[in-house]
Amino acid sequence: MKKFLQLNSWLAIAALAWGVGYIYNARYGGELSWLRIMYEQKMAIASEVTAPQRILIVGGSGAHYTVDAGLMQQQLGIPTLNMATDGPVGLNVILPSVSDAIKKGDIVVLIPEYLILQQKDGFGDRSGQFGVAIGKPGLGGVPAKQLAQDIMLLGIPTLKGVTKSSVDLVEKGRFTGYYSDPITANGDPTVLKQRLKSDWWELQIKEPVSPHALQRIRQFKKEVEAKGATLVLGLSWIYGSTDKQTLGNISKTAEKLGEIAPVLYDKQSLNVKTDSSLFADTHYHLNSSGRRTRTTELVEQLKALNIVRN
């Protein structure tokens, strides 16, 4: 009986420790918590904006920090919402996570980063944990083993995360994170990140889109059309290399995606930019000037498809 009580005590302590870690990681304080909050805010915005036709921007941070949905709405004259989240969530989870927001008449513009398109199984580092955090464990078909591991890790804050939060609490009086800044009524970020170092290097795309990504996007098109909406794809803008391998893989990616749905991109540059002054903190994220240029280009490309009703 004594051993039994001791075991129960240890289990209770372990459960309490895991619960505290989970609250930090997924509810408030950790990076995943800020991502969850941003996602829930975007879904709430989408539920409130009703119109015969809307534009929904879907993808990872490479879409969240590059497309100005507010500006696009002004230029097109129809409600436009930035529903993009985070690349490490993975294609398999990103797509079903926005499914409930899609309504009849919508134009869904999917702009995934190349790291998302190259995933062999559609899962990223945050796939399982993101689903649990938003109350949908296993969303996207996360394998049981991976899901179990992710759930266990949800209760274990990283030393780096705790250290950062401690510093934030002392210096700012609150926790902050990469996605903790407010978003606009269109789902756009209100704060653009800046690269701390000036040593830019040109991103190389070493692989084209994976067969799995093509299959999943093809399935997503069916899901979108079943709701009476339209799927459009887009290539990301990147600060990248113009070497033969990179351009060849991007061209092949555009060709394969074009077999599924219309693809928005500049046929000459393949959306590879060689001016780092347009970019913010990553090879995908744009500063204010870059976002305006990128968004205006997307607007013209959408107009050329003749699917936007003013």
Results as ranks from 00 to 15, higher is better:
residue 145 K to F: 07
residue 150 D to I: 00
residue 92 N to E: 12
residue 128 G to D: 01
residue 124 G to S: 13
residue 143 P to T: 03
residue 117 L to H: 03
residue 129 Q to K: 14
residue 75 Q to T: 10
residue 115 L to N: 12
residue 86 D to C: 10
residue 80 T to D: 00
residue 141 G to L: 09
residue 129 Q to H: 08
residue 130 F to R: 01
residue 89 V to M: 13
residue 77 G to S: 03
residue 115 L to F: 11
residue 139 L to K: 00
residue 139 L to G: 01
residue 127 S to Q: 07
residue 103 K to S: 12
residue 141 G to P: 07
residue 69 A to L: 12
residue 109 V to A: 09
residue 113 E to I: 04
residue 145 K to N: 10
residue 98 V to C: 10
residue 101 A to T: 08
residue 70 G to E: 12
residue 67 V to I: 15
residue 71 L to E: 09
residue 116 I to D: 14
residue 139 L to N: 01
residue 87 G to W: 08
residue 119 Q to V: 00
residue 137 P to N: 06
residue 76 L to E: 04
residue 97 S to W: 05
residue 85 T to C: 02
residue 131 G to V: 05
residue 82 N to M: 01
residue 124 G to D: 11
residue 97 S to M: 02
residue 133 A to G: 13
residue 133 A to K: 04
residue 117 L to D: 01
residue 107 I to E: 00
residue 82 N to A: 00
residue 72 M to C: 01
residue 97 S to G: 07
residue 78 I to R: 04
residue 85 T to D: 02
residue 124 G to R: 09
residue 136 K to Y: 13
residue 135 G to W: 09
residue 138 G to Y: 04
residue 129 Q to P: 00
residue 70 G to P: 08
residue 118 Q to Y: 06
residue 71 L to Q: 10
residue 82 N to T: 02
residue 111 I to G: 00
residue 151 I to Q: 13
residue 140 G to W: 09
residue 145 K to V: 11
residue 99 S to G: 05
residue 83 M to N: 03
residue 110 L to I: 14
residue 89 V to K: 03
residue 124 G to M: 13
residue 94 I to Q: 07
residue 122 G to R: 03
residue 70 G to A: 02
residue 146 Q to K: 14
residue 72 M to R: 09
residue 142 V to G: 05
residue 128 G to C: 04
residue 119 Q to H: 06
residue 86 D to S: 15
residue 94 I to Y: 03
residue 75 Q to P: 06
residue 98 V to D: 12
residue 69 A to Q: 06
residue 150 D to S: 15
residue 94 I to P: 01
residue 73 Q to Y: 03
